Computed example of a mutant assay.
Amino acid sequence: MLSALFQIVFIQLVMPIVFLLALLYEKDNSKFEWIFKMLATVMIIGWVFQTGRWDWVSYYIRYILILLFFICLYFSWKNVKELPLYIKQTRKQKINMSIYAFLLIVFGFFNGSALTGYSTQQQEIELAFPLKDGTYYVGQGGSHTQLNYHNAYEPQQFAMDIVKLNKFSVRATGFYPKELEKYAIYGDMLYSPCEGEVLKSRNHLPDMTPPEMDEDHPEGNYVAISCDDKNAVVYIAHMQQGSVKVVEGDSVKKLEPIGLVGNSGNTSEPHLHIHAEINGVGIPIQFNGEFFIRNNLIR
């Protein structure tokens, strides 16, 4: 929980605000200095916008952050537009510019890496989205670890973790509640993403109380379906105890109910985990012809 608190509060909120205030109020001696500071701020805001987990604080705050940037940009430009383009710098000014240049390079690299995760060169398989009746948020998704930590593990490299947003555009009532019912997705019906045969299923494991995890059973309660026309096995994990409706050997139709979203297994909070494999290697999936990445919404 402490790492999540640090990421959300400091990296996503405090750090961008600090650089916006510096852009607005820090004294510049030339346009050249201002340009370095402005570009570094662009890279930081862009990276946080792309890779932040905005379901924790309200999805639309990421757009407010962009609006604040343009407001600060406008007023900061008014402050420097009469300054010379370049003047000889003092030692202190050189150090200050070196810091901004370093940040520009580092966060420019981070942004470029994140952008590579927006698509994939591999052939995706089309699946039916296994949830209905809500606004769903992709917390992990994409083809780079900047957007999807699963990408580091070959069998799950294109896995997706999905939560549901409530009326305030956050995933839960409270920052990190222990009560499972406070998570908007908990108990939602899950539907088969394809037609096929159930290869494996599990139904007896308890739902964990956040932030407790069951590391001995990573999938928790789950269903593995061999999709008839995809040559792939699709895994749906972390299902609610006692809710799984299918067993090994069952045939399922596309969008047939198969169980409920839970919080069993090695999971930090209720969510849908879904990934597809061919011969033990993860393959990209798409819904309605779209490859989804972190911060995408599915309605």
Score class of each variant (00 low, 15 high):
138 V>M: 03
206 P>C: 00
27 K>H: 04
47 W>R: 06
123 Q>Y: 06
95 I>L: 14
282 G>F: 01
52 G>S: 04
291 F>T: 02
135 T>W: 06
192 S>D: 01
264 S>L: 05
188 D>Y: 01
234 V>P: 00
138 V>T: 02
172 A>C: 10
148 N>H: 11
215 E>P: 09
125 I>D: 03
59 Y>T: 08
24 L>S: 10
95 I>D: 01
257 P>H: 10
279 N>P: 10
284 P>N: 05
124 E>G: 08
48 V>K: 07
140 Q>D: 14
170 V>M: 14
173 T>Y: 15
53 R>G: 14
208 M>P: 03
215 E>W: 06
238 H>W: 00
170 V>H: 07
21 L>S: 05
148 N>E: 11
2 L>R: 15
85 L>N: 13
57 V>P: 08
110 F>C: 11
139 G>H: 08
227 C>S: 05
245 K>N: 05
269 E>R: 04
18 V>N: 03
263 N>Y: 10
20 L>F: 02
282 G>A: 05
28 D>F: 12
224 A>C: 09
263 N>H: 10
154 E>T: 14
29 N>D: 12
14 V>T: 03
140 Q>W: 08
115 L>P: 07
85 L>E: 13
290 E>C: 06
38 M>S: 09
286 Q>Y: 02
138 V>W: 00
197 E>K: 15
146 Q>K: 10
188 D>S: 12
102 F>R: 09
291 F>N: 07
195 E>S: 08
288 N>F: 08
114 A>C: 11
203 N>A: 14
59 Y>K: 05
193 P>I: 09
103 L>R: 02
89 Q>N: 09
29 N>Y: 14
63 Y>I: 03
135 T>P: 04
202 R>K: 11
32 F>H: 11
222 Y>P: 01
217 H>C: 00
81 K>M: 09
147 L>T: 07
23 L>E: 04
176 Y>P: 13
264 S>N: 06
119 S>Y: 07
211 P>L: 04
96 N>R: 15
15 M>Q: 08
271 H>G: 08
165 L>G: 04
227 C>M: 02
206 P>G: 00
96 N>G: 07
226 S>V: 03
39 L>C: 07
61 I>P: 02
183 Y>P: 09
40 A>M: 00
288 N>E: 13
186 Y>R: 10
85 L>K: 10
180 L>E: 05
51 T>W: 08
135 T>K: 15
248 E>K: 15
87 I>F: 06
41 T>E: 01
253 K>I: 13
164 K>C: 11
189 M>T: 15
283 I>R: 10
104 L>H: 05
274 I>W: 03
37 K>E: 03
40 A>Y: 02
5 L>I: 15
186 Y>T: 01
184 A>G: 12
193 P>F: 05
195 E>G: 07
